[in-house]
Amino acid sequence: MPNAPRDVAQIRLDNALRLFDEFVAATVKHPDAAALRGLERRFAERLQIQPSYWSQIKSRSRQIGERLARQFEQLSHKPVFWMDQEHGSAPSGAAPVAASVTDLNPSLPQDDDERFIVGLVLTYYRRHPQRARTRLLDLLGEVLTPPTEAASPAGIRPTKPQSQAPAAAASEASAWEQVAKGIAPLKPKKR
């Protein structure tokens, strides 16, 4: 069946994802940390629904009914019945949104695991900013700075030839030092 009609529920879902893509593109034009946080929550607020409800719509556990479709159209400044019509190639779920956001800013979390880790780090930083900054820089410095040949375990050979390994290690170590130097110290909170 080459031109089988698609059901309205799927068309509405595709259009809701299209609205979210538009929202992300409009928000990320001026990327700053505050604008990039909580995009899905802010999108749900714009449509006057709960973020959990938007999550259920995306996961296909809820469908967009007639009243909600009209609400989405009105709040997104689309013509009546826009949600019920196909508009070009359909988005295939959250992938195009994630791709568009990460193309514009690859440092954004790309999946739930990354969002969880970023959330943990932010929670720690917000509770203890000075201690978090120091500990995280120490930890990342240990992980991102390659070990010297003397510190490598016996029996394990470096993957690069001996002549290239020290130069590469020095280059990576100096790059990490430059990043660490470029981070300004925190200002104490005013009380």
Rank of each mutant, 00 (worst) to 15 (best):
I64V: 15
Q85R: 11
F81G: 00
L75P: 00
H30C: 07
I49N: 02
V24Y: 01
F81R: 11
F72M: 09
R46C: 01
K58Q: 08
F23T: 00
E45T: 07
S59H: 10
E22C: 07
A69C: 01
K78F: 03
R62F: 08
A25L: 12
R41I: 15
A69L: 06
H30D: 12
S52D: 11
Q56N: 13
Q74L: 13
H30W: 01
R70A: 11
E22Y: 00
T27M: 03
R42T: 04
L36H: 01
E86N: 09
Q48N: 08
K78Y: 11
I64N: 06
E73L: 12
F23Y: 15
G88Q: 11
H30I: 08
E45M: 06
L75Y: 09
R70E: 00
A44G: 06
L39S: 00
R67I: 01
I64C: 08
Q50M: 14
H30P: 00
S55K: 11
V80T: 14
A35T: 11
T27D: 05
F23M: 02
R67L: 03
P51K: 12
I49G: 03
D32P: 00
R70Y: 07
A35S: 14
G38I: 04
G65V: 09
D32R: 12
K29F: 06
A25F: 05
G38C: 10
W54S: 11
A44V: 06
